[in-house]
Simulated scan of single mutants.
Amino acid sequence: MQDGKKVIISLRDVTREFNTGDGKLEALKAISLDIYEGEFVAILGESGCGKTTVLNIMGGMDHLTNGTMILDGKDFSHPSPDELTAYRRNYIGFVFQDYHLMPNLTALENVNFIAELSPNSMPAEEAIEMVGLSDRKNNYPSQMSGGQQQRVSIARALCKHPRLILADEPTAALDYNTSIEVLQVFEDIVKRNQTTVVMVTHNNEISKMANRIVKIKDGQIDEIITNPSPTPAALLSW
């Protein structure tokens, strides 16, 4: 527990190895980390340090080689295919650098497509409203800016009522002003919905808005910093 908050995901001594032509590459080296409900966590590090691998393991997009991953008290280190599908569909919301919107569907239809797959989803209209795009709900991706498309992808993740939203460099393709708009959406999600957000970034400035900053270096946790006074997204500057 942290300030009375429940642990959602607990990683213990997690390693991830990849086979290469020259042998094995150890992308993660005995990572141990707890993620708590209702917090904003930034995973910070240089390219190739292992931060995205951590995110993918937590999201069921990749599997650990050794160690354990506990989800809400259940051992999820080696899930069955059915367990993995249900976990990704009902438990996790993903936001990537690329928006992955379906070009032939409107913003509302893109969100509704995901909402229909989840048994406990909120109405797509509500999710669109939460990211401030009600006036754009009938637009197609080609009729929206990059920031607006990314907000649709956030609405798509949010509509499932996920326990955890995982964001991998969600502002990397956006300019500064648009990045701030997108970050304010994440900020509001954490504050208003008490939804846990884990965001991978290489931007030190963005990490200032997190409750905790996890620095990864060479496949290991180098430092975990608790931030008692997160910086509002509107005050970030780079």
Rank of each mutant, 00 (worst) to 15 (best):
33 L>K: 03
181 E>V: 08
83 E>Q: 15
192 R>N: 13
233 A>F: 06
209 M>W: 09
68 T>K: 12
144 M>C: 07
71 L>E: 02
41 V>T: 15
140 Y>A: 03
153 S>I: 06
112 N>E: 14
114 I>D: 06
106 T>H: 01
160 K>P: 11
83 E>N: 13
26 E>S: 07
81 P>K: 00
64 L>C: 11
145 S>I: 08
173 A>Q: 09
83 E>R: 10
55 L>C: 01
25 L>Q: 05
1 M>N: 14
146 G>A: 13
157 A>W: 09
172 A>Y: 00
50 G>T: 01
67 G>N: 02
236 L>P: 04
112 N>W: 01
97 Q>I: 12
95 V>M: 14
234 A>W: 03
6 K>Y: 00
34 D>R: 02
132 G>W: 11
99 Y>N: 01
32 S>E: 07
66 N>V: 04
180 I>K: 05
3 D>C: 14
51 K>D: 04
144 M>F: 09
111 V>R: 13
20 T>P: 10
116 E>M: 14
208 K>E: 10
186 F>A: 06
1 M>E: 13
118 S>M: 14
140 Y>S: 05
108 L>D: 04
50 G>L: 00
125 E>I: 12
221 I>Q: 05
233 A>P: 08
179 S>D: 09
165 I>D: 13
113 F>E: 01
41 V>G: 10
225 I>R: 07
186 F>C: 03
172 A>C: 02
46 E>I: 10
57 I>W: 09
34 D>Q: 09
157 A>F: 12
86 A>T: 14
78 H>M: 12
